[in-house]
Design a protein around this nucleic acid. Sequence first.
DNA 1: ATCTCTGTACTAGTAAGGTAGTACACTTAT
DNA 2: ATAAGTGTACTACCTTACTAGTACAGAGAT
Lengths: 123, 123
Amino acid sequence: MIQIDFRSQAPIYEQIKTGLKGLVRRGLLKPGDEAPSIRAMAAQLKLNPNTVARAYRELSAEGFFEGQRGSENVLSPRAAALARAAAAHLQARLTEGGKEGLGHGRAAAAIEELLAKLKKGAL
Amino acid sequence: MIQIDFRSQAPIYEQIKTGLKGLVRRGLLKPGDEAPSIRAMAAQLKLNPNTVARAYRELSAEGFFEGQRGSENVLSPRAAALARAAAAHLQARLTEGGKEGLGHGRAAAAIEELLAKLKKGAL
DNA sequence: ATCTCTGTACTAGTAAGGTAGTACACTTAT
DNA sequence: ATAAGTGTACTACCTTACTAGTACAGAGAT
């Protein structure tokens, strides 16, 4: 399943999001599959359901899940594409930020802004 | 001088650090030059001296400044090399993080950890 | 129908981090 | 010697954000 690093500076719900996306990207979780329920994952990772719920809510808003209330979290058909797109987008912004930001004189604030958003997990 | 974006999520002292490094990288500030005093910069940017002091303290710890107590902040001979090295290092970590981290299945926690540190301004 | 599962809303506590206020010690120049 | 500059230490406020506690509403199965 997913590994949580409680020592990390990254918030747990972000680790969950990244973890699930990673599972999809690796093919261990495919569109149509059912992700573990909020409570199940919370119990296993010894977290509060709300922490897991936040991750699921944001993933759902991004279109990873399709499923009705009270039932389940089924990975949408777009899930795989989304996970890959997110990874590509992040990678693009990383390399772009590295080259364009530092190669020549770009506004310092812009660089910092990029880094700030990155930490927040703007994948 | 330096531009501060108060709307940014990046802390002010980090913006100051990045800004000064940028000035050095662009050659507008050279080794041997004297950086503005803490109070002068604080007054100009309408900040508390402590905020600027924190930036200067960290820069000093990184070896950008050489100067004795009570006098000034003179850019060390290494300043230019350090600024360039920092930029290169960041760029390397960014591209590395983008490719290695997301290309195939790396531990999610590691990715998050990298992002977290990046936002903290680990240049 | 009741029990158990699901997700969720609201609240609150808590920890971390950044910034400002204030005061002190020292150096230099007038 | 005095005044004005320097950097710094200590404190405290404040904001932000993450996480947990608790309780509620709906769905499905026995």
